[in-house]
Amino acid sequence: MTTQDDKAAIIAVMAEMSSTWARHDADAYGALFTQDATYVTFVGTYYSGRADIVECHRALFAKFLKNTELAGEITDIRFFGPDTAVVTGRGDTYKGATAPRVSKLSKVQTCTFVREADGRWRVAAFHNTQRKPLMEAISFKTAPGTIPAAQK
């Protein structure tokens, strides 16, 4: 049975992801993932395993994501038994003092969390998708049946 403590623990892991990112600490960021985690970037690159996730973020923090921070919101947490949860949210990277407004977050993210033997919740799978608002608007206009129920 999941509890409010489980939900709070998962929210804390998501907050720690932002904190470790802001410090550009690839090792600490990677420690939030299971040893065999998978990670799919918004450009479609697939990483397998914590070591791969750590090394790619070490390189990204040194170059393309240098001086960036994470902004995000959790839109849903659903538990599938006592040790598995799926978290859906929106996120983005940014530079500067002000995070983008929630409505401007350009990525949709799905994380599968598992509670490991040590009792800690970790990310077992992360998938990041770039939103295409113009394409969404065209789809919604030309095929209204594609509009998600939450937006109707």
Rank of each mutant, 00 (worst) to 15 (best):
S18W: 06
A149K: 13
D92H: 00
I77N: 10
K152F: 11
Q109F: 07
V13I: 15
E73W: 00
A71G: 13
K63V: 09
T142A: 09
F113V: 02
A124W: 06
G91T: 10
T129Q: 04
T34L: 03
D25F: 05
A15Y: 04
A31T: 07
D36I: 04
P100K: 04
F140G: 00
F113G: 00
Y29W: 15
D92S: 12
V102D: 08
F140S: 03
C111Q: 11
D25Y: 06
T142W: 03
A59H: 10
L134D: 15
G119A: 01
F80R: 09
D6A: 06
M17Y: 09
S103E: 15
P148A: 02
V43Q: 12
F64Q: 10
E116H: 02
K95R: 15
T129M: 04
R50H: 11
E69I: 00
T93V: 14
T84Q: 08
W121V: 02
F79I: 08
V114K: 05
L32K: 06
F113Y: 14
F79V: 09
T68I: 02
V114I: 13
T93L: 05
F79W: 14
R58E: 07
A149I: 09
K7I: 12
K104V: 09
G30A: 13
E116W: 01
L60P: 00
E69H: 13
S18L: 01
A51N: 14
S18R: 12
A15N: 15
R115M: 04
L70E: 03
D76L: 13
L65I: 04
T112R: 05
V40P: 00
I10D: 00
K95L: 03
L70H: 03
I147Q: 05
L134K: 03
Q130F: 02
Y47T: 05
K107I: 05
P100N: 05
T129N: 03
L105W: 02
P82G: 14
R90S: 12
T142C: 10
R50P: 11
L60V: 02
T84I: 13
S103A: 15
G91C: 13
S19W: 00
K107D: 05
T38R: 03
G81C: 03
T129I: 03
H57E: 05
L134V: 11
M14E: 15
G91L: 10
V54Q: 12
T110E: 03
V87K: 07
L65R: 10
L70K: 07
D5K: 11
D6T: 10
A28S: 13
E69D: 08
A15I: 04
C56K: 14
D27L: 12
V114E: 09
L70A: 06
V43R: 15
T84W: 00
D5G: 06
D25M: 06
I53N: 08
A117C: 00
F33V: 13
G30F: 13
T98P: 01
A12I: 01
T110S: 13
G96K: 05
T93I: 11
R90A: 10
D25L: 05
L105F: 02
T45H: 04
E136F: 01
R131A: 11
E116N: 05
R90N: 14
A143G: 01
G30Q: 10
R58A: 08
I74P: 07
Y46P: 01
F113D: 01
R50L: 10
